[in-house]
């Protein structure tokens, strides 16, 4: 039992050959301060195929396991809703998670980042797969040039502003992690798209275990990627949660039955009970 297992069938190497040359850097890499002319920057996104989600919750639990998510909160959940009159009753499932928003057209800063008192913090460098460098600003909550909205718990002061500011309510305090800058408080936490996994070329945990392949992860900047093709084929640019919030979410939904609007249960102000995975 002490041999390292190396699967013969390799997982899709998401980092290989990704990215397109960024021409108008600010348009594609919003929030970045400088982009080297030749750097190819990925834009990680998720496409959710609602036709294929069977409400099995393997993603919810795989996420708990991957990220040691404590009880009482989640990094991804399935919302479900029963509609219609018997016998023409339907039940729908909706996987939701952090939308890794791009932020509005004007400033390209997601609302959670905007309210973070520690943002903009120190200058950071993002290295691309081809060795290019992109400069950006860090914070307790910040957006990386590859589109991931991340938390640095060491910089967090535990103020909770980002938790309140997220229109999707996908953030919570982690009872097991202290805010780095205020040890009396807990740090904010949320989906980080399994950043260590994707750094190693492995799909996020929820994607890895999704039976129906309802969750598809990849680089939107790579026109040959499955996600780029799906976004184009199904015209998904506007098939996102709460487009009216102007947050520019990067979790897209394939929704041919047009159920997204009726299905999604929004957060109530100051509450997070929409973001609990609970089978009725």
């Amino acid at each position: 039992m002490n041999k390292i297992y190396k699967p013969k069938i390799g997982r899709r190497n998401v980092l290989k050959g990704v990215g397109v040359t960024v021409a108008g850097a600010t348009a594609l890499v919003a929030g970045a301060e400088t982009v080297e002319a030749k750097a190819t920057v990925p834009r990680w996104v998720m496409v959710m195929d609602l036709r294929k989600c069977i409400g099995c919750r393997a993603c919810t639990v795989a996420c708990k396991s991957e990220n040691d998510v404590s009880l009482g909160r989640f990094r991804t959940v399935i919302q479900e809703k029963t509609v219609g009159k018997f016998p023409d009753t339907k039940k729908w499932f909706l996987p939701i998670m952090c939308n890794h928003c791009e932020g509005n057209e004007k400033d390209g800063i997601p609302p959670c980042v905007k309210v973070c008192p520690e943002y903009p913090g120190k200058r950071m460098t993002f290295k691309t797969a081809d060795g290019g460098k992109v400069r950006y600003r860090g914070g307790a909550t910040y957006k990386r040039p590859d589109g991931l909205v991340l938390i640095d718990s060491e910089l967090c002061i535990g103020c909770g502003k980002c938790i309140d500011a997220c229109p999707y309510g996908v953030r919570s305090f982690n009872p097991f992690v202290k805010a780095g800058k205020d040890q009396t408080k807990q740090a904010a936490d949320k989906c980080d798209m399994c950043k260590e996994r994707i750094a190693n070329g492995i799909d996020p945990s929820c994607v890895n275990t999704c039976q129906g392949r309802a969750r598809i992860f990849g680089d939107l900047n790579d026109p040959n990627s499955e996600v780029a093709k799906l976004v184009k084929e199904h015209n998904l640019a506007k098939n996102v949660l709460l487009p009216e919030e102007d947050t520019n979410p990067h979790v897209f939904y394939i929704d041919p039955d047009n159920i997204l609007k009726d299905l999604y249960k929004k957060r109530e102000k100051g509450k997070l009970d929409h973001y609990v995975d609970l089978i009725p």
Partner: peptide
């Protein structure tokens, strides 16, 4: 004891 960095 409490674990660090979110490890349960």
């Amino acid at each position: 004891t409490q674990a660090r960095f979110g490890e349960v």
